[in-house]
Computed example of a mutant assay.
Amino acid sequence: MDTACSGDTAGDSRPSAPTTPRVQSQYLPTHPLYEALWVIRVAPAPLHAPLWTAIFSHGSPGEVVAAFTEALAYDLAG
């Protein structure tokens, strides 16, 4: 089995961490200034710009948001 390794030239090599995208899910409370109720972002690593963003407004059914987040979690789990 091949694994990617990182380390110095003295032979200290360790398996590198898998590159799993980071998911940020935000619930924004009901407020007249907010257009979105749920914001979900996926970034390649912490503190990186998001690769994509999904926004669900107040008119989005809760079942749709739940199904989306469940499918996303299932897909990222492998």
Results as ranks from 00 to 15, higher is better:
Ala4Tyr: 05
Val39Thr: 09
Pro32Thr: 04
Leu28Ser: 02
Met1Thr: 12
Pro61Ser: 06
Ala73Cys: 13
Ala45Glu: 07
Glu35Arg: 10
Thr3Tyr: 09
Arg14Met: 02
His48Met: 14
Val23Met: 02
Pro15Glu: 03
Gln26Ser: 09
Leu72Gln: 01
Ser16Lys: 06
Ala73Phe: 04
Tyr74Ser: 15
Pro32Leu: 03
Glu63His: 05
Arg41Lys: 15
Trp52Leu: 12
Ser60Phe: 01
Ala54His: 05
Ser16Leu: 07
Leu51Thr: 14
His31Gln: 09
Ala10Leu: 11
Ala36Gln: 04
Glu63Asn: 06
Phe56His: 04
Arg41His: 01
Leu47Val: 11
Tyr27Thr: 01
Leu51Ser: 14
Ser6Glu: 11
Ser16Ile: 12
Arg14Asn: 03
His48Phe: 11
Phe56Gln: 01
Gly78His: 07
Glu35Ile: 00
Gly59Thr: 14
Ala67Met: 10
Asp75Met: 11
Gly59Phe: 04
Ala43Asn: 03
Glu63Thr: 14
Trp52Pro: 00
Trp52Ile: 02
Thr20Lys: 01
Ala73Leu: 09
Pro15Asn: 06
His58Trp: 14
Leu76Met: 14
Asp2Thr: 12
Thr20Ala: 13
Ser16Phe: 00
Gly59Trp: 06
Val42Met: 05
Thr69Tyr: 00
Gln26His: 09
Asp75Cys: 13
Pro32Phe: 04
Phe68Ile: 06
Tyr34Lys: 10
Cys5Arg: 15
Ser6Lys: 14
Asp8Val: 08
Gly7Trp: 05
Ala17His: 02
Phe56Ser: 01
Ser60Thr: 15
Ala43Leu: 10
Glu35Gly: 10
Tyr34Gly: 07
Pro18Tyr: 00
Ser16Ala: 12
Leu28Gln: 04
His31Ser: 13
Thr69Asn: 09
Ala10Val: 04
Ala36Phe: 01
Thr69Val: 09
Val65Lys: 00
Gly62Gln: 06
Gly78Ala: 14
Gly11Thr: 02
Phe56Val: 03
Pro50Lys: 04
Ser16Pro: 01
Leu28Glu: 01
Ile40Leu: 10
Gln24Tyr: 03
Ala43Glu: 05
Arg22Asp: 03
Ala10Cys: 10
